[in-house]
Design a protein around this nucleic acid. Structure first.
Lengths: 359, 359
DNA sequence: CTGAAAGCGCTAACAT
DNA sequence: ATGTTAGCGCTTTCAG
């Protein structure tokens, strides 16, 4: 019986099988020559002893670990989730393994920064998903010893390779669509500034308004934080305005869903009274009632580009690209419709009664 | 300037600083004696060369990696997410690191099974979160060389340490509550059988009915798969019944939210026409309209118990426990209310028109 | 306080 | 087809 405590090594297996360590290694790995007889003898010994090769030792010898590290700030984000899932598929395709390291919102602080440093050697390359980091940290990454790639990074210019989605044009498309539907009072619900994505979406929104000759109304811009709760609050705030919007463009689906709750709460109908557009096309978007019109990131294509580019760098292959940008696809579902006849959605009785709580 | 390609090792640092490798090691790690002068000299050299210690080598020498591996089947599950987040906090408390390995639903197949074997040595211990695995795989885990703990495992008896929540009693509490509110036709929406959790929740449901002397109606039991979409389908199916239920108890919040969409779709009100109870208390539960009555797992306490127990095993400390079970807490929000006066929720016109599509 | 030697578990490269 | 040697980058042990 195998001794569970003291881990059994190749030496043990070799001794048990009565061969040299090297022979045991070959018999088990399948590399190099080994007679059928020896091979089965060794395999039997390994099985009997409960041998598991030490990945650490193997990696150290080879210099390559065959592992890609994925660093995320926040596992609970559905967008992050979609990226990680897509990455997992791509990593498997190239026959590597993948670990996820979650900094739980501490990236840039001591612990988060440490990932690329402290655990250096454990992976052949690192992909930062939706990173939000300080300038200092970005700089330190640029000198990292193993290849690093940023997935959906926007905040600063950097020589590091970046794969990202388009935010500006997508936002512009969405808002133009609302304008074509006759909307004039279109609100924007932004997310946190830290990743730089919300900002681009806001600029696309403003550009679309400007193109149509509509003056932007600052009171229709609400600063949220990408979370559903902030979407709920945004919705409540906007609907309580003297002149509420007839359409809301939220910088994330999560916030858009929050807005929808606020709208329902007020007894208004989507899209008859008010239209809603999100961004990201998370799974919940198509399941919402009504299904949410939104902008879809090509998650799988982006993940593939990220893995391939990182691989090129790991292998020092030619043909690298410093930045790849993917357009987002506008998906029209049922949460958007023509602007209501009255210039602005008329708050109904219930709503009117609450006017007092408008800020 | 550091050469980015050829990774710089301690030998390089030592040479640069004009000391022995050992001295460099001591100066950087802080362990053992080192004069202030040497220390700063070495640190300067390390910084200048962009030195990062190779975690692999360090781990190999010490035998301990200070890393706990977390294995999950499905990262997109909100319950898994809640556990992982809680685990992350606890792991940090004991000053270890944590990697997440997602099998993407392939646990038990080649790839998934490989985790504990192939990457053996990379972690000091492994926590399987909400594992669903074959008997064979479970057996192989029992002979694993490093400690393994199962978080929320129910399917088979096993000598492996298990930390889990209570499902049976929680379900019973929830259904008893509905009965007290006057409900008699209470539906159950189950999840996949694979983890064994749904089964326990169903048994709790049946027990509560039996206690109240209510005969279980098989037509009120719908088999879902824990996903929101299956909840939506469950809701549509149940509401289309000749005698629809006045309350639905879903085996997960996710499915409960799907049911709520189906109910709204049919023009019914929650909880006036129909009550809904979920299970898990995922973040979205409290944000729903109306906020969902549900059963909360004590995620943090469970995570703490899991990490502590695993640590005891890693360190071969005494006082181990084979199984720890945590009761779930019944959280009453606004999705449950008294049963409507009419024995069953009367389908309104729209609903009646659709009767044809009842299975 | 600092250095030299040994070795963690494995495999590439060279023998035999 | 199998065995021997060496060494990955680091730290533990023992000597200066």
């Amino acid at each position: 019986m195998a001794n569970k405590k003291a881990s059994v090594t190749l030496v043990d297996v070799a001794r048990e099988a009565g061969v040299s360590v090297m022979t045991a290694s070959r018999a088990l790995s399948g590399e190099g020559y080994a007679s059928e007889e020896t091979r089965s003898k060794v395999q039997a010994a390994a099985k009997q002893l409960g041998y598991a090769p030490n990945a650490l030792a193997r990696m150290m010898k080879g210099g390559k670990t065959n592992v890609i590290g994925i660093v995320v700030n926040d596992l609970s984000s559905q967008v992050v989730n979609a990226f990680v899932t897509a990455l997992s598929v791509e990593v498997r395709k190239v026959e590597m393994d993948m670990f996820i390291y979650s900094t739980m919102g501490t990236l840039g602080e001591g612990r988060g920064a440490a990932v690329s440093q402290m655990l250096h050697g454990l992976w052949d390359g690192l992909i930062y998903v939706l990173p939000c980091m300080t300038d200092d940290f970005l700089k330190s990454l640029e000198n990292a010893s193993s290849p690093v790639l940023l997935l959906n990074y926007f905040r600063h210019e950097t020589p590091l390779p970046v794969v990202r989605g388009d935010n500006y044009n997508g936002a512009q498309d969405a808002v133009s669509h609302l304008i074509e539907l006759g909307h004039r009072r279109i609100a924007f619900v932004g997310g946190t500034a830290f990743t730089g994505q919300s900002d681009l979406r806001e600029r696309g929104y403003l550009a679309a308004l400007a193109d149509a000759g509509i003056a932007a109304d600052p009171s229709l811009i609400y600063q949220g934080n990408f979370q559903e709760l902030s979407g709920l609050e945004a919705g409540r705030h906007l609907l309580a305005l003297e002149q509420p919007p007839t359409a809301i463009f939220a910088a994330s689906d999560t916030m858009a869903l929050g807005c929808m709750n606020a709208i329902r709460e007020r007894g208004l109908a989507i899209p008859q009274d008010i239209s809603v557009v999100g961004f990201d096309d998370i799974p919940a978007a198509s399941l919402a009632q009504p299904p949410l019109t939104t902008l879809r990131h090509p998650f799988q294509a982006m993940a593939q580009a990220a893995v391939q580019e990182l691989l090129r760098r790991i292998r020092s292959e030619p043909g690298r690209r410093q930045r790849v940008e993917f357009p987002s696809e506008f998906v029209i579902r049922e949460s958007t419709g023509p602007a209501p006849r009255t210039a602005a959605a008329t708050p109904r009785k219930r709503a009117a009664a609450r006017k007092a709580d408008s800020a």
